[in-house]
Structures are given as C-alpha cells and as structure tokens.
Design a protein around this nucleic acid. Structure first.
Lengths: 155, 155
DNA sequence: TGGGGATATATGGGCGTCAACGGGAATAAC
DNA sequence: GTTATTCCCGTTGACGCCCATATATCCCCA
C-alpha cells in the first residue's frame, strides 16, 4: 500500500514527542520521503503533511502566475515560508513544535488522518467535530440531489 | 536540500549579532554563495537576502517597466544603490546594521523566512501579521474558485 | 483449541551532541 | 586613544541517539 489511509490517535509524551502511526511510516518509506514537510490547511485547524513533492505541485501552480503579482508572492510565502520540517527520530516519532500546537490547538494527543497522497494532523476533538460537519454537508447534498431529480421545479 | 524553506526566530545579542539558522547556512554553502546580499523588499517591511543572483530577479522586474517612466529609475536606484552585504562571522552570525533595523523595524529578534531561492528577514510580530493577511487572501482565492466551479451562475 | 513465546508498536527516559547565545580578548579602523 | 570588528572559548538548552518496558497481535506447536 502506498497511500495514506485510515486514522489513529497517539499521545504526546513528556518530551513533546509523538509516534507517527506505523502504517504511515511504511508509506513514507515506500515513497522515499526523507524528512516530512508540514503546511497549514487554509480553512481548517489542521496540518497537511507529506514529502517535499508536496511542494512540487504548488510550485507548478505558482509558475502559472505572473511572478511579480501579489498572488504569486503570497503562494510562495505560504508554501516556502509558512511550513515546517518534521524530522523523525529513529523510533518513528516527531516532536510537536509550537508551530503545530498554535495552528491546530493540539495539546496532549494527536489525531493522524490519511488523505491519500498526504496525511493530516488534528486535535482529536476538533477532528470529531469537523467529521460531523462533513457528514452533515454530504447528507444535505444527497438530499438536495434526490429532491432535484424528483420534482424538477422544487426550488 | 537546496532551497530555503520554513522559518525561525533568533535573538540579537548585546553586540548586535544574530545567528542565521543552521539550515539556511547549509543552503548558502550548497549554493556556493560567498557573502550574502540584502535588498529592501519592495512592498513589505522585510529584507530579501540571497546570493548575487538575487539581482537577476529584480533586474528582470525592472526590464518589464518602461525605461522612460520614473518607476524603472526608482526601482533601479532602490535595488542597485540601496542594498547591503551581510558577512558571516565564523559562528554563522551576521551583524544587524542600522540599514536592516530601519527598513524592517527589527529591534531585539529576527525572523528568518525561507522563500525558495532566497530568504527574508522580518520583525517577528510584523511577520505574524503579514502571514495572517496572506492566508486570508489565499483562502478567498480558494473560495472564489470553488464557488465558480459549483454554481456557474452564482455571481 | 488453547497456551506460550516471538514480534511489532507505542511510550518512557538517560545521555551525548550541536546550535544558539553570551562574553573576553586580540586585531583592525579611525 | 577610541571605536568597531573579528576570533575564540564557555554555557545552556533543545534535539537526536540509544535502550528499556508495556501491551497487543500473530504464529507455532502441543
């Protein structure tokens, strides 16, 4: 398996370290990532974590912009300057920095969530809340869709 | 790693020196920069720091302007006449000059921000404020894009 | 089927190394 | 002489390396 799937919650120890789930570590190795790179998710209190190829995608996107306009500068600032390296110790743990705590609200436990080509780090209770919201939205979407397909002029 | 990534805040000591983050120093060496060259960023209170190839980027910018207009002349003056060399001591520190303090508002601490091919020096609280603005703009960009892709006649 | 290891994972903690930082003294500049 | 810069050394705290332990899972074999 070479994709980040499923989720797990691990505890932060007294030194501020937390184990990355073994399954995720296997994916990291298979993909040949040395260090991990973490970016802030823009609309949720979570971090997007992956290899440096996470940046390739963004840099490709930036190259489409006029390099002297604000948009390009913002994008570069965000991915190059507003990220952080996560270094494994040899037991597969990373240290939870202030950068991580600030953006996510993480204090004692970390929820790791697979997202295919990358994974996310969440404060567990916030993740749960967010999950409920997502399910709610999907349910409404589905209901709206079936309402539309029944009576075409319902709205 | 050959790009300036992530950020760090270091303190200025009583002699006016500040350590350049070790990771950045490694990049500097890998890129073969002897001394560093610092330019005022055009629209933010920060310094752009890198090798002399930094000038290439700005000269390219200037070449886009009409040479008969004042803008091109202003930019050239700004860049060629208003830069400064930053010399490392043998512990990897640079001295914070009045030039740096004036343009950035730096007093006791320096935030180093990776920007890929160069890095920036900021006054930490100003950086934080600017980062929040950038994320806000990027979020709006993203939301505008998804609104467009959902309902085509929403606007 | 059930017991008893062997293995893997998460977690805790000791300890050495290195980067950041502070300061003394030599050297250069004015 | 005075000031500023450069070199060198010591301190400190964070982080990486290493080892130990507890728990769960799997596998083999009786």
């Amino acid at each position: 398996m070479d994709r980040f799937l499923s989720s797990a919650v691990n505890r932060i120890d007294a030194k501020g370290r937390v184990s990355v789930p073994a399954h995720f570590r296997a994916v990291v190795q298979k993909r040949g990532y040395g260090d991990l790179y973490a970016l802030r998710a823009l609309d949720v209190p979570a971090l997007d974590v992956g290899g440096l190829d996470l940046l390739d995608r963004y840099e490709q996107r930036i190259s489409l912009e006029d390099p002297f306009l604000q948009a390009a500068d913002d994008m570069s600032f965000f991915i190059h300057g507003d990220g952080a390296f996560l270094k494994f110790d040899q037991d597969g743990r990373i240290t939870v920095t202030d950068f991580i705590r600030e953006h996510t609200g993480i204090t004692t436990d970390v929820a790791f969530v697979g997202r295919g080509t990358f994974f996310q780090m969440w404060e567990p209770s916030r993740l749960e809340e967010y999950g409920a919201q997502v399910r709610q939205r999907l349910l409404r979407l589905r209901q709206a869709a079936s309402a539309r397909s029944l009576g075409e002029g319902t709205e």
